Amino acid sequence: MKAKEYLSQAIWLDKKINNKLEEKQRLESLAQKVTVDITQEKVCGKKITSPMENAIVKLIDLSHEINDDIDKLVDLKREILETINKVNDITCQVLLEMRYICGKSWEDVASAMGYDRSTIFRIHGKALKEVQKIKSCD
């Protein structure tokens, strides 16, 4: 795996979690609109589940998925941060942390570090080479 792909894993997992959180909100909103039919009866010994029950089960399952993904994200960020801390240049470390741990845009990174975008991309290229060396030694 190339350095940029390795570092970007956390960004993509974070986006995946955010998508699931949006889906959870949509399901919660939908569950509040579901009506319960109290006239349903058991027929032939089959258990009939209500739309409300189905919605709640889906919400619970999605909540568990989100929690599992958050656990993975925390572990992944910790691992990536350990790798970033092995980079010798502090400027490269700060850039990598801002971009791949904090998820900041290139404009925000450039502004916070006081560099223009082309300088940020040059430092980023240097940092990626260092990370690639570190990951190939692991």
Rank of each mutant, 00 (worst) to 15 (best):
K42N: 09
V43A: 07
V43P: 02
G45F: 05
K46Q: 12
K46Y: 13
K46P: 01
K47E: 13
K47Y: 11
K47A: 11
K47V: 14
T49I: 12
T49A: 08
S50M: 09
P51A: 08
P51N: 07
E53M: 04
E53C: 06
N54Q: 08
N54E: 11
N54V: 03
A55W: 01
A55Y: 03
A55C: 08
I56Q: 05
V57M: 06
K58Y: 02
K58S: 06
L59F: 04
I60Q: 08
I60L: 04
D61I: 04
D61A: 04
L62Y: 00
L62M: 04
S63K: 02
H64E: 04
H64P: 00
H64S: 02
H64W: 01
E65D: 04
E65M: 00
I66D: 00
I66K: 00
N67H: 06
N67V: 01
N67M: 01
D68G: 02
D68N: 12
D68R: 09
I70C: 01
I70H: 00
D71F: 11
D71M: 11
K72L: 06
L73M: 06
V74F: 07
V74L: 13
D75G: 07
L76M: 10
K77T: 11
R78L: 10
R78I: 07
I80A: 02
L81C: 03
L81N: 11
L81R: 10
E82Q: 15
T83R: 05
T83A: 07
T83H: 07
I84N: 00
I84K: 01
N85S: 09
N85D: 15
K86G: 04
K86Q: 15
K86N: 10
N88D: 13
I90S: 15
T91Q: 12
T91A: 10
Q93E: 13
Q93S: 12
V94T: 14
L96S: 06
E97H: 08
E97Y: 08
E97R: 11
M98K: 11
R99V: 10
I101W: 12
C102N: 13
G103P: 13
G103W: 12
G103M: 14
W106N: 15
E107N: 15
A110V: 13
A110K: 12
S111M: 15
G114C: 09
G114D: 10
Y115V: 15
D116E: 12
D116I: 14
D116R: 15
D116P: 13
R117I: 15
R117C: 07
R122D: 10
H124W: 11
H124L: 10
G125P: 04
G125L: 11
A127P: 07
L128D: 05
L128Q: 03
L128P: 00
L128R: 02
K129I: 09
E130R: 12
V131G: 02
Q132D: 13
Q132L: 08
Q132S: 10
K133F: 08
I134C: 05
I134L: 08
S136V: 13
